[in-house]
């Protein structure tokens, strides 16, 4: 096998892995803080994608300008979702360490959002021609598709911003405190439900960012979220639930597996290899690459 081809596959894998990782980042943040798996995460991504799709389609904006609308919109959406639907169940299940009922509420949200999109927009696969679609950037002999490259940069910037926010701002510190020990944080005067609303809002906003990143090169359809849901779940388990570097590294691993194995075997089988790797990690290192063994 040609060295150049393998290197190109690695480049493609890392570029793909970056937006997988970004999608998983929102999920892992929400889990880390609220200890709830957000099954509606893919649907939030779908909402972000459809919003970006209509913005680009109707106004002809640059897809990344849509971020200005999509990010605040999804933040508010996530904030409201947590505040109105999830909070009552969380309060009712206060004493349960892992409230399963909340997972079910998010699953209900998933079903409603996906099928509302189906009713509104139909099942067809949509593409929108943007100003960056199909453009490439050459470095030597290696090809970097521009939309994916921008996606990589946006992933890096978002992760950096998120880590900075969690480390240095007052709200970020409150979020970290609540994720470590919600009762102690409450005693220190942190309003834990407000922290949850904001964490959920940020998670949703990140899903919205992924939506904008995907628009120039990915199809939009009502169940697009399910594709990413399953990938994100694998990534966060692989990387360790609640771990930010885990999400990014997990995303890169999945992206690399897909693109490198696609050089040797049919692409339907690479999907299977992802599951095999996932199960193998589960047996060898159940808490994931960056997960803490003690708590899970």
């Amino acid at each position: 096998m040609d060295f150049d081809i393998i290197l190109q596959a690695i480049i493609n894998g890392l570029l793909t892995g970056s937006y997988y990782g970004l999608a998983a980042l929102g999920l892992t943040l929400i889990f880390g803080v609220i200890k709830v798996i957000n099954f509606a995460h893919g649907s939030l991504l779908m909402v972000g994608m459809f919003t970006a799709y209509w913005i680009v389609k109707l106004t002809g904006w640059n897809p990344y300008a849509a971020l200005l609308v999509v990010v605040p919109l999804l933040f508010l959406f996530g904030y409201g979702l947590q505040g109105f639907l999830i909070k009552p169940v969380l309060i009712a299940q206060r004493d349960v360490r892992e409230p399963t009922e909340v997972i079910i509420v998010t699953t209900g949200v998933w079903y409603i959002l996906d099928n509302l999109a189906l009713m509104l927009f139909g099942a067809e696969y949509r593409v929108v021609q943007t100003s960056v679609s199909g453009q490439i950037f050459m470095l030597g002999d290696y090809i970097f598709p521009k939309p994916q490259l921008y996606g990589f940069i946006i992933t890096a910037a978002t992760s950096f911003l998120l880590v900075w926010f969690l480390k240095y701002t007052k709200m970020g510190k409150a979020i970290r405190a609540a994720s470590l020990d919600r009762d102690a944080a409450s005693l220190m005067g942190i309003n834990q439900y407000r922290v949850y609303n904001i964490a959920f809002g940020i998670g949703a906003a990140i899903a919205g960012i992924v939506g904008c990143v995907l628009i120039p090169f990915y199809y939009v359809f009502p169940t697009v979220g399910v594709v990413f849901d399953v990938k994100c779940f694998i990534i966060v388990v692989l990387g360790g639930l609640g771990s930010i570097p885990g999400a990014l590294v997990g995303g890169a691993i999945i992206g690399l597996i897909e693109s490198i194995f696609a050089q040797f075997i049919a692409s339907t089988w690479t999907e299977l290899i992802v599951y095999v790797v996932f199960l193998a990690v589960l047996f060898i290192r159940p808490a994931g690459l960056f997960g803490e063994k003690r708590d899970w």
Binding site: F31, K35, I37, E98, T100, I103, V230, F233, I234, V236, V237, L241, T268, W269, E271, L272, Y275, V276, F278, L279, L282, F283, P286, A287, D295, W296
Partner: peptide
């Protein structure tokens, strides 16, 4: 391996396993 972990891991693992079986059958 999964039942020793926290519930979230179990839910996600079983779901991924189910999808894996489907992909295997389809291939």
């Amino acid at each position: 391996p999964t039942l020793k972990l926290r519930g979230a891991y179990f839910a996600l693992s079983t779901m991924a396993f189910g999808e894996g079986v489907r992909v295997l059958a389809e291939n």
